[in-house]
């Protein structure tokens, strides 16, 4: 009985949290379950992923089901290409709803419950590290060829000869001023750090790290091992043909 009361008290709370996200407000109207989003979705063709079902679950406002989504693999399968947004006859955007679900999963720490969710750790470390240290999301100085063999021998050549190649191609690599790959001045990096502090990104980075440390302990791994494992390991069962 007590359990049921608690359940009723909690019912709709996760939905209410989701509803505060502006991407949810923009991306979720009334879904008629036509399945157009799933038909157009590149991820649905590859992964066990069905945006129609996700919108249907969210629409039911059942917190148990939403909680299961926050802990699931499926919300991490979307590529955020937003092809669904173009085609929905009711102007929903499943991709924006997914972004709101992922945000809530990260905010509440449920992302560590799934293999694909745990990838938030290496992504956060690399991307926010690049932004705060260099002012770029992606930069050749932190792009490791061994992590990207698909970039081919030609990009290994570029990385081995950065100053020569980027210099020849008109970049301002490693220097002050304007131009491609210029050094972003310290005062601008300080402003990015201040934006992160002000808008909750710093808190988010710390929280993702803390949750990941706890999960790494549970999995018996050091943080280095955990980072490598989450970046590289893919279990069976994610794909449609498995």
């Amino acid at each position: 009985m007590e359990k049921k009361v608690l359940y009723l008290l909690n019912m709709g709370k996760l939905f209410d949290e989701l509803s505060k996200d502006y991407r949810f407000k923009e991306g979720f109207k009334t879904c008629i379950n036509c399945g157009t989003c799933t038909a157009i979705c590149p991820a649905a063709e590859f992964y066990k992923y069905d945006p129609r079902k996700i919108l249907d679950i969210v629409q039911r406002k059942d917190d148990d089901e939403i909680l299961a989504l926050l802990k699931s693999e499926t919300i991490w399968y979307c590529g955020e290409c937003m092809s669904c947004m173009t085609r929905c006859p009711r102007k929903n955007a499943a991709g924006l709803v997914i972004m709101a679900l992922r945000n809530l999963s990260a905010k509440l720490g449920y992302f560590t419950c799934s293999e694909k969710g745990r990838q938030l750790y290496p992504l956060t470390k690399v991307l926010t590290g690049n932004i705060l240290k260099l002012g770029y999301c992606v930069h050749p100085d932190t792009y490791k060829y061994e992590d990207h063999p698909e970039s081919g021998p030609v990009f290994k050549w570029v990385l081995d000869n950065k100053e020569e190649v980027y210099g020849r191609l008109g970049a301002n690599y490693g220097r002050q001023g304007t131009g491609a790959l210029r050094v972003i001045p310290k005062e601008d990096l300080d402003e990015l750090q201040a934006i992160f502090d002000e808008t909750g990104a710093t808190e988010r980075i710390d929280f993702v790290e803390k949750c990941s440390e706890q999960k790494a302990r549970e999995m018996g791994m050091t943080m280095e091992e955990y980072g490598k494992y989450t970046f590289e390991h893919c279990s069976r069962g994610h794909f449609n043909d498995e």
Binding site: R23, N103, I131, C137, T178, I184, D188, L192, G200
Partner: peptide, 27 residues
């Protein structure tokens, strides 16, 4: 015109769900 002070827009970090929406907006 290009300013030496502009930075990443944070778009890739945003679409990898690593920064909150208001962070991306403020950048």
């Amino acid at each position: 015109y290009e300013s030496a002070h502009h930075t990443t827009c944070g778009g890739i970090a945003y679409h990898c769900d690593t920064i909150p929406q208001e962070t991306a907006m403020t950048i």
